[in-house]
Design a protein around this nucleic acid. Sequence first.
DNA 1: TCCCTTAACGCAATTTCTTAGCGTTAGGCG
DNA 2: CGCCTAACGCTAAGAAATTGCGTTAAGGGA
Lengths: 183, 183
Amino acid sequence: MAREMVRQGGRSARIQAEVHRTVNELLKEMDRGAITVPMVAERAGVTPSTIYRRWGDLSDLLADVAVARLRPVADPEDTGAMRSDLEAFVLQYVEEMSSRVGRQMLSDVLGTWEGDAAGQCCQFTYQHLETMRERALQRGEQAFDVSEAIDFIMAPVVYHILFGDREVTPDYCRSVVRRFFRT
Amino acid sequence: MAREMVRQGGRSARIQAEVHRTVNELLKEMDRGAITVPMVAERAGVTPSTIYRRWGDLSDLLADVAVARLRPVADPEDTGAMRSDLEAFVLQYVEEMSSRVGRQMLSDVLGTWEGDAAGQCCQFTYQHLETMRERALQRGEQAFDVSEAIDFIMAPVVYHILFGDREVTPDYCRSVVRRFFRT
DNA sequence: TCCCTTAACGCAATTTCTTAGCGTTAGGCG
DNA sequence: CGCCTAACGCTAAGAAATTGCGTTAAGGGA
């Protein structure tokens, strides 16, 4: 579910916003597994059936909220050089994703294939990397390949966040970027 | 849930096996989202309350089944050389994980933190890589670092399976291994 | 501007799933 | 062989999910 709204103004948009806000609020207060649709509905001031009809079920709703939250609001910071741009980006990404809530958002996104949530989030990353690549080109730097940056930088970081097999520290992030430039 | 059984013989073990078998069967027949606890219970010939008590809820059960299925039954094939060992391993891993069911198992494992399912699966990979490393040492090859193999080989492959942003073809797998040895 | 169409919502009844109490069965140990 | 109790089955109560139907209010056209 969470399809694009046919009607995007007024009541429908208000409810969507309110439900999203409520989910984010609950996500901070309690464990993801403790959240239920009726609970969200009551706090948001709507009836459960509204949520079920619009989003399908709880997983789809959570995935939809996650995608909305992961959707970038601005271009990645311009630090003046390609390498520091990449470093800043991955550090911020990890900062957001390795928290409890961030980790849960990731698995919510990966656990559903409604509206291709995973693909969408992936696109956000691609777009950011592409922006950084073009910036590098304009500076006259020897630019990098976006899909290689995914493989060398993003993939390891995401892997360790998801599987929890090692701390994803800032130092580790920097070492990953360093390794990328030694290819 | 899915804790280690206190009693590991007889009825308890029979039920666990039957429930696992049933889940795997259903996973082949229908979409993961269509499966319910009562459905599993009926087919397995047990009451729903047994499943709820033992596994907690559907996600925990699915994660438990996934971990059991991912648990290796044998050491990775010995192909005679380190590089071909790694290639064979990643090819088989991808073969299993990039199917619809495999993809679902992965997200089930990542979507729960009961019994550290994700960590367990990760351990299986580590163990296999470690086996291959030791084999390489015995052959007198210059062995690789296991955690680097994770970052260079497994992470990209898993990333693309999960996010679905590109086909993980055998050619791609081989190119990932090739890249690893050019470090 | 006002009306018409219909997407989206609220309400309520129904169905299905989940939880919990309690008695029963059957491992595992002395 | 018999005791202890983990684990199961049954059942009832509670919560969540689904569905039909009437109502509200976007959005488009006269």
